[in-house]
């Protein structure tokens, strides 16, 4: 269980998170939603110990994240950002192999086992056929799969994703989220991710957090969080919230020209 307690954090002198607290249970599919600049990514970075908060604590199973060795921490929680640096393009298999680094010796020479692990992962995600292609020559959907493979190679119980579905079409988006749901349901991984698509968030996550201006506005099941009032206020627009007749999950439709219609 991840406990985020009274986190205040930011970059240089600009405070982005203000006294944020929330809990993430084991095996949660935990989605963070909110406007651009609300502090979603910053919260993920604090959780992964990438930036030090000004105050507050993050604990994983009652252990403060600062008390872990870097290498041990990398075996518990893996992080994938939306951004891939392609200034030095690696091949897909080299790229996935980075996920095995926490398990390697000082000079990071891969062992036979490391090759077996990444082979299995690439097979299970159906990316083995372009294992020797360069990462910058892939489509966004393929890249996202490679990022998942890299994270899986790390074999952690907690997987943190920063916007895994940005730039994806609706089909690829569903595919990626289904892979993550499989990991969550079949392999009991805790998934923490930020999303922009409220409908995808409502459909796939079992818990949602809505952030606003660096603090948490509401936290709970999709039914609780995706209510018309909060969404309209946070996103400053007009919406209708309905229930999906097949999955019984809430979905959100934006409404334009509502004033004219009301007249």
């Amino acid at each position: 269980m991840i406990r985020i307690e009274n986190i205040t954090a930011g970059y240089l002198q600009q405070e982005v998170l203000k006294d944020v607290s929330c809990n993430i249970d084991n095996k949660d599919f935990f989605g963070i939603i909110g406007k651009n600049g609300a502090g979603k990514s910053t919260l993920l970075k604090v959780l992964c110990n990438l930036i030090k908060p000004y105050s507050g604590n993050v604990t994983i199973d009652n252990k403060n994240i600062n008390s872990f060795l870097k290498r041990d921490f990398a075996k518990i929680i893996s992080f994938s950002s939306q951004h891939i640096d392609i200034s030095m393009p690696f091949t897909v298999s080299e790229f996935v192999m980075f996920g095995r680094y926490p398990y390697m010796n000082t000079l990071k020479i891969p062992s036979k086992n490391d090759y077996v692990v990444i082979d299995n992962i690439m097979n299970s995600l159906n990316i083995k056929n372009f294992a020797e292609r360069k990462i910058n020559k892939l489509s966004y959907g393929e890249r996202q799969k490679v990022l998942i493979a890299q994270v899986l190679a790390q074999e952690t119980n907690i997987i943190v994703f920063d916007e895994p579905t940005s730039h994806l079409d609706i089909g690829s988006q569903n595919k990626i989220l289904e892979i993550l749901r499989d990991l969550n349901e079949k392999y009991n991984k805790t998934i923490v991710l930020t999303l922009h698509d409220l409908n995808a968030a409502g459909e796939f996550c079992n818990k949602l957090t809505l952030m606003e201006n660096g603090s948490i506005c509401s936290c709970g099941t999709p039914e609780e969080v995706l209510n018309c009032k909060d969404i309209e206020r946070v996103y400053n627009t007009n919406v209708v919230v309905k229930t999906n007749p097949i999955s019984n999950k809430p979905y959100v439709i934006p409404v334009s020209r509502i004033k004219e219609l009301r007249r």
């Binding site: 992080f79 951004h83 640096d85 030095m88 690696f90 980075f98 890299q150």
Partner: peptide, 23 residues
């Protein structure tokens, strides 16, 4: 030459290189 793999991780860049257990 022996540090090749560590250099790879550095040129991987971004936040990812900081979350695979390397200083």
């Amino acid at each position: 030459s022996l540090s090749g793999n560590i250099i790879n991780a550095i040129s991987l860049g971004g936040e990812k290189s900081k979350t695979i257990g390397l200083n």
